[in-house]
């Protein structure tokens, strides 16, 4: 028996969302079980299952923590870019 991750979406314009897991011997049985466990109250019209072992993830989440200031990677860091450019031009003119 394997653990399968179950995804469903409520309509074809919605994204698939993870909704839980089932334990099953193969993918066909996993779909069968997932239908009754996660779509029995009309929560959606589409369903995926995938074996948990087929999902790949980082083993060390500490890699996601930034070591330095990365605010330049966010749009909000450029909010007053017009004012800054004006300031820079003015400074350049004074030189």
């Amino acid at each position: 028996m394997d653990v399968y991750e179950v995804f469903r979406r409520s309509g074809h314009k919605q994204p698939f969302e993870h909704c839980g897991t089932v334990t099953a011997p193969d993918s066909a049985m996993a779909l069968l079980m997932a239908k009754e466990c996660y779509l029995r109250r009309e929560e959606g019209q589409y369903m995926w299952v995938t074996r948990r072992s087929d999902i790949h993830s980082w083993s060390d989440e500490a890699l996601f923590e930034p070591a330095a200031d990365k605010s330049y990677r966010f749009a909000h860091a450029y909010r007053d870019v017009v004012r800054k450019r004006e300031l820079a031009r003015r400074r350049a003119g004074q030189l």
């Binding site: 089932v22 334990t23 079980m33 239908k35 466990c37 029995r40």
Partner: peptide, 11 residues
Amino acid sequence: PHIEEDVAFSS
């Protein structure tokens, strides 16, 4: 036999 089947068969 198992929890998922319990839900399925009850349905």
